[in-house]
Amino acid sequence: MSTEKKQAEQIKEISGVNPLKCMKCGKCSASCPSYNEMDIKPHQFVSYVQNEDIESLVNSKSLWKCLSCFACVERCPRDVKPGKLIDAARQIVVRQKGQDYLLADEIPELLDPDVPQQLLVSAFRRYRR
């Protein structure tokens, strides 16, 4: 099995999403507050996994723009959960050594006096292994 095929299977496994359920209505992309920031759009996550183009997906900046706000999950008429799919792709990346999106060293300059602890723990959870 090719690496990408393996990774595609892994993404389906981690996310629990069956991409075949998607009917390509685009309601996820219509709901996404980060749409304009993303290069690969929410409704496309599904086809990238289906076509096993994981290389493009894991290099996409969409991984770091998704807010896990679950608007796409809540409104999807086919119960596909695109937000879980992109999180699984993010997991594929951060679980590899040295692939953290947030480094401890960059923290000081990102801080301001009002930053709530919650922001730091959340970002660490999402961006790092």
Binding site: P33, S34, K65, L67, C69, A71, L102, A123
Partner: peptide, 19 residues
Amino acid sequence: NECCGGYVSLKEKEMAKNM
């Protein structure tokens, strides 16, 4: 019930601000 930007505001301050 629209997202405020959540944890994205740590690294992408502009994006969260727009939202």
